[in-house]
Design a binder for these strands. Sequence first.
DNA 1: TTGACAAGTGGAGACGACCTCCATATTTTG
DNA 2: CAAAATATGGAGGTCGTCTCCACTTGTCAA
Lengths: 216, 216
Amino acid sequence: MTSDKPLRADAQRKREALLATAREVFDAGDFFDLRFDDFARLAGVGTGTLYRHFPTREALAEAVYHGEIAALCDRARRLQATLPAEEALATFLRGMVDHIDAHQGLARTLATLMADRSGALAEGSRALEQAVTDLVAAAVRDGAVRDDVGAGAVMMALHGIGAAHDRPNWRAEADGIVTLLLDGLRSPHSAQAATVSSPARTRCDTRSHAAGEGSG
Amino acid sequence: MTSDKPLRADAQRKREALLATAREVFDAGDFFDLRFDDFARLAGVGTGTLYRHFPTREALAEAVYHGEIAALCDRARRLQATLPAEEALATFLRGMVDHIDAHQGLARTLATLMADRSGALAEGSRALEQAVTDLVAAAVRDGAVRDDVGAGAVMMALHGIGAAHDRPNWRAEADGIVTLLLDGLRSPHSAQAATVSSPARTRCDTRSHAAGEGSG
DNA sequence: TTGACAAGTGGAGACGACCTCCATATTTTG
DNA sequence: CAAAATATGGAGGTCGTCTCCACTTGTCAA
């Protein structure tokens, strides 16, 4: 699908130029402030050419995103090959935060795109998701991590970390959420799960509520 | 700023009409597919009137969002008043998932808006954030929850849950992430033994401790 | 090298959404 | 009731998006 027809030399060159420019603008976080036409001029091509290569803004974003994802998946694989499963997962997640931190603009752009119902990035995400799934699955197999919560939850959390890029205290909070995830994953459900939802405790509650939950 | 000048009777009526329409469209998830002008026609007002009341799409969204937030904050306060801190937090988070689940369209719209750098919703979010912060703080005071991870991380996770609305397995994953958060929050890092001193919970705690503490 | 065909280019201009402006209508006040 | 203040609505200006096609550039066979 990606290379059905070999591009002509100049076409390839223009395409690269567009991608390079896109990457820059992406990283600067100006992706949505820039008229799409100006984009072309900035890359030194005509509007027609821009649209020929990338029919929509999202298509362009997707192309940039693709490389990004590939790198991250690579990293996941390397970690999984060289570290114990649990540690690989932890390192990967921490690394994701570092990565997003180092590419705020890109993160912001991706967040915006993800929110769009276009789903242009959904496909690209799938690869990343597979990597995360593998990491979690390995940790589960090791018995280092509970098996009643899928990797999807972790993906969702990553999603949130990326989406919340503009929070003033982002870095600390992102680290916090990763910590919570990892601690939460270390199978507490077999031992202490009863703490909150157990009948034992509910009965005890009578003390405080009575008026409690009736009103949904 | 919200009510500097008392609106004229008809103005108030039009405003309500717009808000009602907005709420519908919001819930249907069509908020961004609809031409802003058509919005006016749909509510039975002219474009001029629409823009007079809500200068931008975001302003309109913010107005809708505001009521939503108020309701959620109310709920948080009620829970906090009637349940032990830890349970209040847990119930609130589970309830948030229910709420978002029941209002997918709204969730999607909000996610899109949040991603926008406009920050139009930042102010509205602040109230919700305060509510969450209070819930967490109370749980920390009770010793039911670790104190080295702020409420911000929880907000970020909620953000993610809302933002990831279009994942096929959304509900299960959202539940999963909440579970991870809650389990992660139950102070695994500072030993729970030290916290029994908290007066509010002590009386009741003896029982649940007896049930859950064995494995410490 | 050269000719001929395929592949690609670029920017003028059609299109359509967003928003402003003001003549007119409605409410409130004296 | 008249006048003043306030609000309405939609025609039309503005500006970004995207299409279209006359022209340029690359490729390949002889």
